[in-house]
Write a protein that binds this DNA or RNA. Sequence first.
DNA 1: CGCCGTTTCCGAATTGAATCCGAACAATAG
DNA 2: CTATTGTTCGGATTCAATTCGGAAACGGCG
Lengths: 208, 208
Amino acid sequence: MARKPQQERSKATMQAIVEAGFISLQTHGLAQTTTRHIADIAGVGVGSLYEYFPNKEAVFKAMNAHLTTEIVAMVRALMPSLVRLDIRPMVIRLLGHFRELLNRNDGRYLKYAGFSMHAERSRQLEAIQQLLVELIMQYALHNPQLTRLRNLPVMSYIFIHGSVFTIIRHLSEPNPNISFEQLSEGLAEMIASYAEAELAKLDAAPPS
Amino acid sequence: MARKPQQERSKATMQAIVEAGFISLQTHGLAQTTTRHIADIAGVGVGSLYEYFPNKEAVFKAMNAHLTTEIVAMVRALMPSLVRLDIRPMVIRLLGHFRELLNRNDGRYLKYAGFSMHAERSRQLEAIQQLLVELIMQYALHNPQLTRLRNLPVMSYIFIHGSVFTIIRHLSEPNPNISFEQLSEGLAEMIASYAEAELAKLDAAPPS
DNA sequence: CGCCGTTTCCGAATTGAATCCGAACAATAG
DNA sequence: CTATTGTTCGGATTCAATTCGGAAACGGCG
């Protein structure tokens, strides 16, 4: 029943269970990922799993939290350098790191992300969304002309969701007929050309 | 075991089960959508369900096929009128119909789409993707200047996936902080402004 | 209509995974 | 060392998915 670990070993057990979740999902697939399997891989008894997680879903949530944490850390670390780049290289760099992270450990994270996006579980996704909104704000601060864009919230929403889902879907495809490089360049182009076009429009007919 | 219906009444049973699947999902949620529930709602015994579907997943697949069929029919019916519009109104009209379809029956379809996007189940999604590629091709035929765009496949991929996922996610949000109209106009703007910018670029420096 | 082979329907029985629980095993305090 | 609290374990329980054996409805036919 969702106990809080008080000794060191129990923290290790918890961590082992979460990692076992990723491993089981990766090697056996969702259907075969039973509590018994997870516990076996983690090297603990089934009962132990229930000491720290109220149910199987909670294990998935913990996996989600783990992944979210890694993504947030990655973006935060990248942010200072991103804000100094032009839009296209900025987007391409960010997406490249995103891909690298998802592909770690033989795509362990990707496998999870691929079928996780959907579920209710994803209050977590909002954390990432907020972080990316923050990135856009920071970026705008370093590139003040962007602050003239009026519908930044809407377009941010579109760029963020459009990019994230498209990337995850693309990485999950067994044999996509376009390359990751083409895709990320396309996304960068889409975003940059929108911003440029909009700014040009403002210059032509200054806002009232 | 996945019998083929030969009499009329069995066809009705099958249809009732698929519809019950949507209803159960809508009113009781995924977790409560058991075979017994589905059968109860459909007004048949559990055993009957297994006469036509090898397992529960197959019911979901049938739901998916049903929804896909409706979407395809909708787009095909719309296509002749869409190709005559400018990009922005074309996108907005298409998305508007898409929304209307997903919201039918108190969002029965949307609920399903929301958590279905992901799964393996979605060989179906490819049918929609292909249809939209076809729409873009038809559109380009009616607007020949678009055929000059070189990376249409990549950008189509981005526009299609970006739009579909973003729309479904937005419609699924309980209280989004941007309106559907803003969103669809934003998507239209993104697509149109990309096309315009790219064409302008080609005019400035004609392709080698 | 009454009979027969076929199709459809059913729900009790089976199976297996998720979850619960209490005993056994470690750590830590005094 | 003993008491107390934290941790692990795996068998027992519960519940949903699936199977199965036969009942009921159908549709033609004499």
